[in-house]
Simulated assay, not measured.
Amino acid sequence: MVDYRIELVALPVSDVDRARAFYGDTLGWPVDHDHVVSDEVRFVQVTPPGSACSIAFGRGISEMAPGSLRALQVVVSSADEALADLRGRGVEASDIDEQPWGRFVYFSDPDGNSWAVQELPDYSAQAQQ
C-alpha cells in the first residue's frame, strides 16, 4: 500500500504581501519559505502550529480565483482557546457553533478563503456507554 500524505495545499490570494502578513504576522503561523523564483512566480509557505500540512500561496501558484477556497479545516484541542486566540490577534471569528460532530469556529482570510476550526467531540464518553 502506498502512503498518500497531504503535506501542501495551495491557497489562492490576490495580494501576496497582505496574505503573508495575515498568516505570518496576524495568525502567527511560521513562514517556512518566501522565495521570488521569477517575475511570474513567488512562493510563500506557512505551516499552522502542530500541523503536518503546510499552506502555500503566492504569484503563479494557483489558477483558482482569489478567495475561492472554502474547504480548509484544522482541528484543535479546544475551540474556546482557538476562539480566544483568533480574536486576541484581531481576527474576525464566529462564535462557537455546537454540533454533535464537534465544536466549530469559522474565520476567513483577507481574500475570503474560509477556515473551519474544529474541536472533536469526546468519543471516549460514548464508548463507555
Rank of each mutant, 00 (worst) to 15 (best):
V76I: 11
V2K: 12
T47Q: 10
E119A: 05
D109R: 04
M64T: 03
V74F: 07
E40H: 10
S77G: 15
A19P: 06
G24V: 08
F43E: 03
A82W: 03
R59H: 11
A84I: 09
I55K: 04
Q73F: 00
D39A: 15
R87H: 09
C53K: 00
L120A: 14
V74M: 08
G50V: 08
R103Y: 04
V9C: 10
R59M: 12
A10Y: 07
L120T: 01
V117R: 04
L72T: 11
A79I: 09
V31Q: 04
D15N: 15
V37C: 03
Q128L: 13
D109F: 02
W101A: 12
S51N: 04
L72K: 00
P12V: 07
F22E: 06
H35I: 14
S62D: 06
V13S: 02
Y23G: 10
A65C: 01
L69I: 00
F57E: 07
F22Q: 05
V44N: 07
Q45S: 08
S68M: 06
V31Y: 03
V105A: 02
W115R: 01
D17S: 15
V44W: 04
M64V: 00
L27Y: 04
A19Y: 07
V41P: 00
V31H: 03
P49Q: 04
V37A: 12
R18D: 15
A84Q: 14
V16T: 15
E98M: 10
R42N: 12
Y106F: 12
P12S: 10
H33R: 14
L72S: 08
D25P: 02
G102L: 06
F107A: 05
P100L: 09
Y23Q: 10
D32V: 11
L86M: 11
R20S: 12
D95S: 09
D17Y: 01
V75E: 15
A65W: 00
Q128W: 01
D39Y: 03
R87K: 15
T26W: 01
W101I: 09
D39F: 03
G88K: 02
